[in-house]
Every structure is written in structure tokens, then in C-alpha cells.
Design a protein around this nucleic acid. Sequence first.
DNA 1: GTAGGTCTTCAAGTAACTTGAGGGTCAAGA
DNA 2: TCTTGACCCTCAAGTTACTTGAAGACCTAC
Lengths: 150, 150
Amino acid sequence: MPDLRIGVLAGRTGTNAPTIRYYEEIGLLPPAARGDSGQRGYGEEDVRRLTFIRRCRDLGLAIDKVRALTTLMGDPARSCLEARDLAKAHLAATRAKLAELKALEAAMAGFVTDCEALCAGGSGPDCAVLENLAEPSERQAAKPKPMIQP
Amino acid sequence: MPDLRIGVLAGRTGTNAPTIRYYEEIGLLPPAARGDSGQRGYGEEDVRRLTFIRRCRDLGLAIDKVRALTTLMGDPARSCLEARDLAKAHLAATRAKLAELKALEAAMAGFVTDCEALCAGGSGPDCAVLENLAEPSERQAAKPKPMIQP
DNA sequence: GTAGGTCTTCAAGTAACTTGAGGGTCAAGA
DNA sequence: TCTTGACCCTCAAGTTACTTGAAGACCTAC
């Protein structure tokens, strides 16, 4: 059964080998079977599990959420509604981040056009836009928390 | 002039004290003036500089880009067009990230609705959606790179 | 048999801070 | 004057999710 080497598993799941070892180290993957030479061997179940993990990570789920999901998948006693709730929470976080990023896009675009309109070619310290960014405002001081990654 | 203590500077710029010390350590802020007791003292220029830095960070600029900008601001010989180009590059990265995040939002929303429609309340291992996430696909294996944060 | 590619472990590096330990400073109130 | 509590100091280690590097073992093909 465990006839795939780590490089093959990596290739089939879009991971790389050190990451697979790292996942094993933190317990996200079970310890791999070892051949006589000590090399790791994997089977189709490992491909499925790692595919799942990678897909969750690509969706932006943190490692501990992924761990919760894989645990969930292995436990017949627990409802998949738990998985849905986890996803729901993540969706909310994603939407918040999306809104932040949209604002960011607008701000950067504004910066670029302002810079072109107001002071194109001037020297750094005279740039009106840089000046403006350095000016403390009420909004800034009152802001409770900076942007965080969920 | 340097009559503000680190806590005051932190409060007025939406930062916290260890972060300010960290910025000093990595050279993003100049070494602060010290009083007799060794405590740091700041002035209005520091408020401006740190405000600028925080605003750039909130806009998602990496520390080394911010460093480039602050250097630019202090150097009369260099054009603010350099700042604009830096911002332009960042804008492109932001737009790419935005697109990724939109796809992510759709995927997560799909997960939630599918889970509710297909297997609401079933046990974890039987969940059709979790099942589906674990299924290797051509798309996944062929994908060159996962989502990265710029 | 040898060359090149892949594998092993272990350690350290990355970003951008945050947290903790252990102790010093300062202003106000009893 | 003493004490209390808020604030400050340094230094070290922790965080997340890996990546990179060193030094060596193994495996396959020519």
C-alpha cells in the first residue's frame, strides 16, 4: 500500500516535500510508514488526506481549523454541521477581509492618481501625497485595531 | 522637544509600545532621544513619521517598502515618482489578491450552501462536501502556486 | 561504478510583530 | 515620607506556516 515516495505525493497534491514533513511533525498528517531504508511511503489515502488539507489551506483556513476538520472527518459521532459552522465563520472573516482589501485598492489607486495630478516629478519631501499620509488625523488615532489576517 | 513618552506616542498613532521599540530596533524609526532615566522621549516629528509608517502598513505595504518610502521622503534629490511607482506595483498586487479573495468567498459560500442542501446533520465522514474536498482533481494538481500574501 | 536525482535529519531563517520575565521610574494620594 | 499603581526598560522566546541550507544516505540509469 505505501508505495508512493514523498516527492510523488508532493507532486500529486501540489505540495512540496519539506511541507509534508512539516505537516507530519505538527501532527496534521499521521507518521508515514517507513521502508527498510527509512524513507517515507504513502498510499492513496494519504493523497486524499493531503489533497483535503491543501485545499483547505488554499481556501485560507488556518492550520488549527484544518486540524479540526480532519478530526471531524475521522469521527463518525460528530455532525458535519460542525464543519459547516467552521466554514461559515471563515466566510464571515473572508468577507470582512474582502471589504478591507477593496478599501485598500481604492486608497492605492487614489494615491497613484493624486501623485500624478498634484506633484508629478517633484522631489520626495515635497510630495503632497506623502505629506498627507504623514498627517495625523482623528480617524487614524481613533481606530481601535489595524488590519489583521484571520 | 522630545517630551512625549512611548505610551503617548503609541496612543496617538494607533501603535503599541513594543511595536515602536521593534521599529527602532530594525531601523524603521531613528533611535529615540533618552532622558536621564533612560526612558525614550518623542516629539511631533516622531508622531508624523510613525503615523506615516502605520498608515502605509495598514495599506498593506511590507516593511521594506515603507522603509523605501521614508527614505524617499527624507531625500530631496529623489523624485516622488519613485513613490508613485512603488504604489503602482502595490496596487497591482492588491488587485490580484482581491480577485483571489473573491474566488475564495464564492468557494466558501458554496461549501456552506452545499453542506446545508446535501447532508445537513449527517455524520462527519459521510459529508458529501468534505468528501468532495478530499477528492484529487486535475485542476488541483496542475495549479502552479497556492495563494500567497504579498 | 559512477553520476545525478531524490531522500534523510537537524538547525536556522523568514515577517512582523507579541508575550513574558524581572526589574527600574514616576506621579499621586495617605 | 511611604506606598501604590501605572508606566517604562531590556532581553529572550514565542507566534504562523512554512522555506532554506548543510551534511550525508539511497536509488536508478547508463
